[in-house]
Every structure is written in structure tokens, then in C-alpha cells.
């Protein structure tokens, strides 16, 4: 290819760091430094239960205390997020495939339509689900009219004829609210696939399912991996869905951290819990990054 030398990168001069410094400074001051403060407070003791004070004394036991006190919510958060992520793949992959290969001239319009719901407030969308799934809502009415309550209870879609206040509702809300972050990266990776490669695959394998499994699926895996990170991380940390669609038995780790910080003012315990949560997620992300490289995550 002629002129490739023109697109190659320049050697950086002092000016490069000048371009970088405002953004980098912001990220260091307000992301890395606060992480240090969080860790410091996580290792502190709260001497007076009634005051928001703390004294730093390397109190490592805060971490084990946090895990043993909130293990249920930790498991629940990762469990709900995992199920929601799998559902996002199940729902999003076929749609992304449709958009990439079968949507024809409507492709860009349909792709834009995926984004539209996410330009409405997250909270109001979730409240709308509360209306749709609520006791006076259309879904429950429909199920009751058709006398299907027993069936939906049996399928664990409802419990005692209600959608709300169940883990299913919370997982459904998480799936809905983060599915766009799954559809878009999968679409991007599918769209990159050369159309000639598809033809070759079709000629090579008699059964279309084999062509898909051997050619298309492996090429789209980076998109699935990126989508998994983009849905799993926010879903695990979210507590709005659990708060609006669930009940006391569906509370997730986010609402415990929120409560410890903002209601109980127990900063050391809250910081320890927050730090553990982040450590688990970061370990997972690093594992991913090791497999894929940061370029894939950025794309």
C-alpha cells in the first residue's frame, strides 16, 4: 500500500506531554489518588460509633469483617450480574448478527434505534418497568385473564403471581439496562468480517451451522469479551434495579456500600467493602486483558 509511511506514528516531542497532561492530571488526581484514600480509610479504625471519624492503623481485619458480613450480597451481586450478562449475550448476539448481515439498507437506522432507549433516563426507564410489571400493570392483568399465573409461577417468571420484588425482576432490569453495551461491541466485531470470508465459509461447510461455529463465532469473540466486561462490571455494581424492582432479599453490594457510607457513616467498613469489590473486579479484568490485550478492550 502506497503512503503507509504517512499514517505511521510520529516521534513524540515535549508537546506530546503537554497535550496529555490536563487529562492525565485529572485522572491521577481524581481517580488514582482517591483510590489511595479509599485504601487508607479501609485500613482505619472507627473509634467512636457516633462520629464519622477514623484513625489510620493498618487494620487489615476490616477486609475479612466486610467479607464475612456481606458475603451474601457479594455472591448475589456477582450471581445476578453473571446471569444478566449471559442473557445479554443470548438476546444481543442474534440481534447484532441480524444487524451486521441481514438488515440491508436499514442497517444504520436500526443500529441507531438500539441506542435510542438509552438516551432516556436510566431511572425513569426502570420506573417504567415497575409500571409494566406492577400489580396493576398490563402484564399481570394479561396473565391473570388467561389464568396463566400457575404456569408463570412454575416457570419462576413470577412468584405468587407477582413480578416485582423477585430476583427475576432485578436480573431482568439489569439485562435491559445494559444490553446495548453487549449489542454494540458484538456488532462491531461482526461487521469487520470480510463478506468474501462468509462466502468461502459457506462453500467450505455444507451445514450453515458449521460455517457459523468454525468461522463467524471465533471472529466475533473479541466483541463478546468486550461486551461481557461492559455489561458485567456495571451490572455487578448497580443497585438501582435491585432497589426499584426487588425487595430486601435482592439487595446488592452497591446498596450496602451506599448505606454504610451515606447512612451509617461507617467509613472504614464501607471503604473496605468497596475496595474488596473493586479488587475482585480488577482481578477479573486483568485476567481478561492478559488474554486479549488492552487494544481489544479499547476498541
Amino acid at each position: 500500500m502506497a503512503g503507509t509511511s504517512n499514517t505511521s506514528l510520529r516521534k513524540g516531542r515535549k508537546g506530546t506531554y503537554a497535550l496529555l497532561s490536563p487529562g492525565l492530571l485529572w485522572l491521577i488526581l481524581f481517580f488514582l489518588v482517591p483510590m489511595g484514600t479509599l485504601l487508607k480509610i479501609a485500613l482505619s479504625t472507627k473509634p467512636d460509633p457516633w462520629l464519622p471519624n477514623y484513625t489510620f492503623d493498618w487494620r487489615w481485619s476490616n477486609f475479612s469483617d466486610a467479607v464475612s458480613r456481606f458475603d451474601t450480597q457479594l455472591y448475589r451481586s456477582f450471581g445476578y450480574a453473571a446471569i444478566a450478562t449471559v442473557l445479554c449475550i443470548a438476546i444481543g448476539y442474534p440481534l447484532a448478527y441480524f444487524l451486521a448481515f441481514r438488515a440491508g439498507k436499514w442497517r444504520s437506522v436500526l443500529l441507531g434505534l438500539v441506542m435510542v432507549p438509552f438516551f432516556t433516563s436510566f431511572l425513569i426507564r426502570t420506573l417504567a418497568w415497575k409500571t409494566i410489571l406492577g400489580r396493576q400493570g398490563p402484564t399481570i392483568w394479561f396473565i391473570r385473564e388467561l389464568h396463566l399465573t400457575g404456569v408463570t409461577d412454575f416457570l419462576h417468571l413470577t412468584s405468587n403471581g407477582a413480578f416485582l420484588g423477585t430476583p427475576q425482576a432485578v436480573i431482568g432490569g439489569l439485562t435491559y439496562n445494559f444490553v446495548a453495551f453487549m449489542i454494540l461491541p458484538i456488532y462491531v466485531s461482526l461487521e469487520k468480517i470480510d463478506i468474501n470470508l462468509l462466502d468461502a465459509a459457506r462453500d467450505l461447510y455444507d451445514v450453515p451451522a458449521n460455517a457459523f461455529r468454525k468461522i463467524i463465532l471465533p471472529l466475533s469473540l473479541p466483541g463478546v469479551f468486550a461486551g461481557t466486561l461492559l455489561t458485567f462490571i456495571p451490572a455487578a455494581g448497580d443497585y438501582i434495579n435491585a432497589n426499584l424492582l426487588g425487595n430486601a432479599n435482592t439487595s446488592m453490594i452497591g446498596s450496602q456500600i451506599d448505606k454504610l457510607f451515606l447512612s451509617e457513616s461507617n467509613y472504614p467498613a464501607a471503604a473496605a467493602l468497596s475496595f474488596i469489590f473493586m479488587a475482585i473486579i480488577t482481578a477479573g479484568v486483568l485476567l481478561y486483558a492478559k488474554v486479549l490485550g488492552t487494544e481489544e478492550l479499547a476498541a
Binding site: 496529555l20 487529562g23 492525565l24 485522572l27 491521577i28 481524581f30 481517580f31 488514582l32 489518588v33 482517591p34 483510590m35 484514600t37 479509599l38 487508607k40 480509610i41 464519622p52 466486561l229 462490571i233 456495571p234 455487578a236 455494581g237 448497580d238 443497585y239 453490594i253 452497591g254 456500600i257 451506599d258 457510607f261 467509613y267 464501607a270 471503604a271 468497596s274 475496595f275 469489590f277 473493586m278 473486579i281 480488577t282 479484568v285 488492552t294 478492550l297 479499547a298
Partner: peptide
């Protein structure tokens, strides 16, 4: 620099919020 740019995107909101809270409080 790439890693520092990507990190906030892989950090749950609750952790970013609570760490900023501790910084401003401290």
C-alpha cells in the same frame, strides 16, 4: 497512559463514587 485511561471504565460506579467521597471528605 492507555491503562490509566481505560481503568475508570472498568471500575464500578459505586467504587468511583465512594473513593471520590473519601477524598473530598478527607
Amino acid at each position: 497512559v492507555n491503562v490509566i485511561v481505560i481503568l475508570p471504565l472498568t471500575t464500578p460506579e459505586i467504587v468511583m463514587g465512594s473513593s471520590l467521597f473519601t477524598l473530598f471528605f478527607a
